[in-house]
Every structure is written in C-alpha cells, then in structure tokens.
Design a binder for these strands. Structure first.
Length: 551
RNA sequence: GCCCUCGUAGCUCAGUCGGAUAGAGCGACCGCCUCCUAAGCGGUAGGCCAUGGGUUCAAUUCCCGUCGAGGGCACCA
C-alpha cells in the first residue's frame, strides 16, 4: 500500500458514492492525499468531503459520513475517521504499511523514480560563464542546483541533457587576451581588463609552453595569447566542475554558433514566422507581441549581431535538436531576460512555456559573520575551487542545494565547515553511516535477514509507523521536486527522514544485545533499516552528495 | 517612474498549486549512554507568518494597496 494506490482506491469510492447518490460532481482525476501534520490525524487525510460540499449541496460532514465506512473497507486500511469540519483521516493497518519496507529494498536504486515526465526531452542550461576566469561562488550555486535539477528530472522519467553555453565571443574575450598579454610582458594590466592573480598564472603558463609567443608581431601575438588563455581557462573550468561532480552533456560555444552560420539560420527561421522587422537601420525582433516590454535588436545598424541574436539563434538551435523544453538558470541580475527569452520561443512558433527561466538570488558569503566582498574585477574572488578546498564537495553541494534558489543565501564558511548539525549534510550522512554500521553488525552476527521471514505486521511501534510513513513519501517528494524544479525539497525530505530514523533508532532495538537470541521483531526492523538506508542513498544520489558507510 | 524577487522565532531558513494546533537547525535552559556510531534522542522557552483590505466553508498561502530590503530597466557583453 502506497499513497498513490490509496488515492486511486479512495477516488474509486468517491466516484461510486456520487454515482449511487445520483450526483453529477466533478471529481479531480488525481485525488490528493496529504500527510497530516499531527500523528493523531492518522497516516493520510483527504479533504474531498469539504471540496465537494458546495457542488453536492450537502454538508461536508454528511458526505464524510457516507464515504468513511466505504474507505475503511479498502484492503490495507485499518480505520477511516471523520474529524474537524469534515476531513477523513485514514489509518493503514500495520501489515499494509510495513510492506513498504520490503517494497523499497526490492526496488533498490529505482525507489523514488517515476514516470511523471516520461517522454519529455529537456535541455537544462546553467552556469554559462565567460571563459575569462575561474568560476566563482555564484556559478557554484548553479553548478550544484542545475546538476541536481537534471538528476531529479531524470528520476521523474524525462530525457535530460545538461548544457554549458560558453560565452567565447565579444569584447570580454579581447580584454581577457589583452590582460594576459600585458601580464606576460610584465606591463600594467589595462584598467578595464582582468586584474586577478590568475591572469599572471595564465601568462606564465602560456609563455613556458611556448616561449616564442612573445616574439610574434603584436596583432598575431594578441590573438595567440587570447586563444591560449581561453583554452587553458576553459579546461580549468571543466576540471573544477568535474571535481564538483557537475557533469555537462554538452559544451556549446557561442563562436561555433556563429561560425556554423546557425545565427543566420536562426534569424531566417524567425523571419518566416513574421516577427522580424527593420527600423533605423537595425533589425529587430518584435518580442512585444509576446509580453516583452520592448522590442529587441538582433542586428545593429553597423551590421553587427547583438548578444541577443546569439541567444535567439541558440534557442532555435536547441529546438532543432528536438528539446521540447528549455530550462535556463540565471542570476537575479538577469531577470530582465525572462520575458524576452520566453518571447523568443513564441516568435519561433512555440509556446511561451517551452522556455522556463529559473531566477536565482545571489549568494553572499561570510566567514565568522564578516561579509566577504566578491569582486571579479578587483581580483578578490571566492572561487568554486576555493570553496571546495575549504568545505569539501559534499558540504558545498548540499549547502547550496538545500535552499530554494529564489531566496537569497548567506553561507558562513566557518559554519559549514563544522561537522555538527549546523551542517545538515552531516546529519543526513551520519544517519546513513549509522544504518550501514547496524547492517554490518548484523552480518557479523550471521543474521541473514534477507532470507528470513519478513512479517510486516510486526512493525507496529509508533516510531516504526512514522518511519514507514515518511519512507512511503519519497516518490512523491521526488516527483514534486521535478515538477517544481526544486531539488531542495529532496534535501529537506532527507533531513526529516534522518530525524525520524534517529528517533526510531533511539526507541527500537534492531539487533539482539550481547547474549540475546534473535527475536522475531528484529527481522522486520532490519528490513526497515535497509529500506531507510536505500532511500537516503537514493536521495543523496539525486543531490550528487556521497552516502558514506562509515564516518 | 516601470519591472522582478523577497519580508515567517533572537539568528539562518523551511512550509504556501488554500486545509485541522505555523516547523527545523543554531543560540538559551533542563534531562538521557552497562546496550547496534551521544556526529544521537527527549523536554522547556521563543510568533499579530511586515501591514491594510478583498475572494473563500477555510488565507501565512490567492488578488489589490501600503511600508521595507535586494536586484533590473543598453543598437553592452
């Protein structure tokens, strides 16, 4: 018995009742069963009687009185009681609930996956930094969250591709090249150039690899420095992301987009749709047709493409690759792009909602309460690499994922370095390690629980019920996280699960003490432990955080 | 001026596609190891869910206004 099955059964009861009573009611296709906040209200509750009261012209209580006895008849349901203004509280019998443990263990890594997004082909683009320096803290948030979103969408059945758009074209690249070249000649870095110490490191590395580069004619030398620095910097970003367990299925280059004539092609496609016009010598896209507050220039009066032209062509390119949904993760400073990006989809003949833009607030970082100012230009950067060196991949990823992206985030380096409950990741990992330890001990005692009789009905302790109920929620949590693009829900869920497990562990002895024999209640508890371990493991997997067997 | 996001415990934050008594961690205070990891557990204290209206059987959640915080409004990249 799981929440989904139960919801289907309850709905069938409601439909049967309405038909019998001769009422033509609109009953939701998927009836929502919620888990009551209070344990006194049973395992699941439905508000269906309240919801139908108005259209049925009956009191909620009267409807509930008709439904409750029939719900109580559903196999696996122990009791159905009416409470409050007409809620029906459902209690499962312990055997039906206990069965969850076995189902989870047998499902293994597949527990939590679903099919809600089966058939969707989704492109998730995030970070998309200039290759002109190390990835900094803001990028790090997207690296963690974007990767987790991709994992969660995949678990929900979608076919997902992650993508990094390399902004390797334009004046920033030239400033970058000029800065590195100046550093190589020990000249002052141009005022509008890049000032960080890494510029000097790049310059040295380039000169060591190719000493003759400084003898080249100036124009040629500039290009050589720019390209060499680009290659090194991109490689550095890729290595750091790999170390951070953020994998990109594809790296799309803005340059390549232009060189392959994809920009012309994209514009041509938009012209066919009739939203392109010329004014004052420039070529515009009429994004105001679809909710943008002003039209946008694609080609400037001087014949140059705008950055927006690249973006537009890039979208057309993604569609050509058969993605039916393009998700973008952008910083709060880019929120002005939302309406124009969605308008691009509409101008291309697609639906507005085929573009989804997730706007993330920026990350503030403190060390012992004192704010550290981030400024790339001043060279005072807290980079992804530095963060990982200081707190580790697990703590960094988890700390960045456990908050919704639309809320501003303050990370205190001192706090997230602590191995205490300040770092919920340690709390969750500890629960996993604790269970792994129990299962190891069981094996050492020669208890082959998998091959012993599993009596689900023995899992009747209050704490066991709580734990089973929370475990059964996992698939719904994953589905919700995918649907809402909110992987932090998985993290919060794991914290709740770990807490419930610790409470269970505190009250229920899993293994026989030193001189005791194996008792019948030990076996289902071992199954329950194994199910919890599997669920925590699967959840951490979705966040890209490791699940250690020992700590 | 217009637009976006946000305002919940002393602090950092969950919760909100409308549901019953608003939650966690930290900080404070009081307890729990003869026993599978005390990196754990139990308890106490702490709230006009910024504010004023509206919709509803039901609003912290949805809508409008006000106040406050942050960000954005290029033929820049």
């Amino acid at each position: 018995m799981n929440p989904q099955n139960l919801a289907v059964s309850v709905r069938a009861v409601v439909v049967a009742w309405a038909t019998e009573a001769g009422l033509a009611l609109e009953i939701p296709a998927e009836l929502q069963l919620e888990r009551p906040k209070s344990r006194d209200h049973g395992d699941y509750a439905t508000n269906i009687a309240l919801a139908l009261a108005k259209s049925a012209q009956l009191s909620p209580w009267a409807i509930a009185e008709s439904l409750a006895p029939k719900i109580a008849q559903i196999p696996g349901v122990g009791a159905a009681e009416i409470a409050g203004r007409g809620f029906i509280n459902i209690r499962l019998d312990s055997a039906a609930l206990g069965q969850t443990a076995q189902i989870i263990v047998e499902a293994g890594a597949a527990f939590g996956t679903g099919e809600g997004l089966t058939g969707r082909h989704i492109n998730v683009e995030f970070i998309s930094a200039n290759p002109t320096g190390p990835l900094h803290l803001g990028h790090t948030r997207w690296a963690a969250v974007g990767d987790a979103i991709a994992r969660v969408l995949t678990a929900a059945g979608a076919q997902v591709s992650t993508e990094f758009y390399i902004n390797d074209r334009g004046v920033q690249m030239d400033k970058f090249g000029a800065s590195v070249m100046a550093a190589a000649h020990r000249e002052e870095i141009p005022e509008d150039g890049y000032q960080g110490a890494y510029i000097h490191d790049l310059a040295s590395a380039i000169v060591i690899a190719r000493p003759s580069i400084k003898e080249l004619p100036v124009a040629e030398q500039f290009t050589a420095f720019r390209e060499a620095a680009y290659a090194l910097q991109l490689k550095q970003q890729q290595q750091v992301l790999e170390q951070f367990r953020t994998h990109f299925d594809s790296w799309a280059s803005e340059r390549a987009l232009h060189e392959s004539n994809a920009v012309e092609y994209g514009l041509e496609r938009l012209r066919e749709q009739g939203h392109v016009y010329e004014l004052d010598g420039a070529i515009w896209l009429r994004t105001t047709d679809f909710g943008d507050d002003k039209d946008r220039v694609l080609v400037k009066a001087d014949g140059e493409y705008t950055y927006f032209a690249s973006d537009t062509a890039y979208y057309v390119n993604k569609r050509e690759r058969n993605f039916d949904l393009c998700i973008y993760l952008l910083g709060a400073d880019h929120h002005g792009y939302v309406s124009r990006l969605r308008a691009v989809a509409a101008c291309n003949g697609d639906e507005l909602d085929q573009v989804e833009v997730l706007i993330g607030q920026l990350v503030k970082i403190t060390r012992g309460g004192a704010e550290i100012k981030l400024s790339k230009r001043a060279g005072n950067i807290v980079t992804l690499e530095e963060l990982v060196d200081e707190v580790g991949v697990d703590a960094a990823r988890y700390s960045l994922i456990r908050y919704p992206v639309d809320s501003p985030l303050t990370l205190d380096l001192e706090v997230i370095t602590l191995r205490t409950n300040d770092n919920p990741v340690f709390y969750v990992q500890y629960a996993h390690a604790r269970i792994a330890s129990v299962l190891r001990n069981a094996a050492e005692l020669g208890i082959d629980w998998r091959n012993l009789h599993f009596d689900a009905g023995l899992l009747a302790h209050e704490r066991e019920n709580e734990l089973l109920g929370v475990l059964a929620e996992f698939p719904r949590v994953v589905a919700g996280a995918a649907e809402l693009r909110e992987p932090h829900r998985v993290a919060r869920y794991l914290e709740e699960l770990a807490a419930i497990y610790h409470r269970f562990y505190d009250s229920c002895r899993v293994l026989p003490r030193g001189d005791e024999e194996l008792a019948q209640e030990h076996v289902p508890r071992l199954w329950l432990c194994a199910a919890t371990r599997q669920t925590i493991f699967n959840g951490l997997q979705l966040l890209g955080v490791s699940a250690p067997d020992r700590m």
